[in-house]
Amino acid sequence: MRIDAHQHFWARARGDYGWLETIEAVKPIRQDYYPADFEAIRARHGIDRTVLVQAAPSVEETEYMLGLADATPWIAKVVGWVDFEDATHRRHLERWSHHAKFSGVRPMIQDIADTDWMLRPDVQWGYAAVCALDLTFDALGLPRHLDNFLRLFDRYPKMRVVIDHCLKPEIRNDAFDDWAVKMASIADKTGAFCKLSGLGTEAKPGWSAATLRPYAEHVINSFGPSRVMWGSDWPVINLNGSYDSWRAAAEEIVKPADAARIFGGTAKEFYRIA
């Protein structure tokens, strides 16, 4: 089974994609993306299932994505959103936990100015609920969050965690060493998984497989192929590359012996895809 462990759809008229409408750098992808727009790509690369991930900080978007999943057989799982600053949102997690295609949540931590937000006492109910309901947690952050994610994962060892986009190393600035040491520490000291995704977006324009290889290989070597899953981050990848270029680079970097796990098996296991 070939699985794309991280992709998005959005309909701008829904009105809750603030980043998409206000950040000038993302203007090239400021348009609607629906399952029909992904069909040719999916067929070209033989993608059997995908994991649809939130792109708006709203409960309503999660409901929208679950509706898309209900109508689209190849959307295997949905990663949604709840407000970690509102403990009454546990009711949404409880309700969605009964939906066969709901997997878990992703707070948009990368967009929160306070680096220590994830450790605040008032948001801890969210992690506890994820654990209690046996849901997944997608960790979306930046290199500045590495130390706190290690603390968080250590605090909740039973939480099913996957790090999104390799924690977005600053490849364009050749920032490798500090990121590499801290990622290796998370891999060694916790049970977290990691998505091999988003690297092209963090590189300078014109990147190649050789540009991304040190970062990708470090993640694979640190976490092991049984804890690494490939994701396209489509359509965001279109800001600095394409689905085809990123898939080709990943296939060049990943060893043949690891391909079955990284391009499908790990995501199937982590997200419990039938």
Rank of each mutant, 00 (worst) to 15 (best):
H89M: 11
D83R: 10
F102R: 00
R91I: 12
K101F: 09
R95H: 12
R90G: 14
A87F: 05
I109S: 09
R91K: 14
T88F: 06
R91W: 08
W96Y: 12
F84L: 15
I112G: 04
S103E: 07
F84H: 14
T88R: 12
A113P: 10
D86M: 11
D114P: 01
A100P: 15
R95P: 04
E85M: 05
R106W: 10
H89L: 04
S97T: 02
A100N: 10
I109D: 03
R106A: 07
K101T: 01
K101D: 13
D83P: 11
T88Y: 08
D83F: 05
V105S: 04
W96I: 06
D114N: 05
I112D: 15
F102E: 14
D83E: 07
H92F: 13
D83N: 15
D114A: 09
R90A: 03
R106T: 02
L93H: 03
H98E: 11
Q110K: 13
H89E: 09
R90E: 13
H99P: 15
D114I: 00
R91S: 08
D111F: 09
T88H: 09
A113D: 08
Q110D: 13
R90V: 14
D114T: 04
D86E: 15
D83G: 12
R95I: 06
R90K: 09
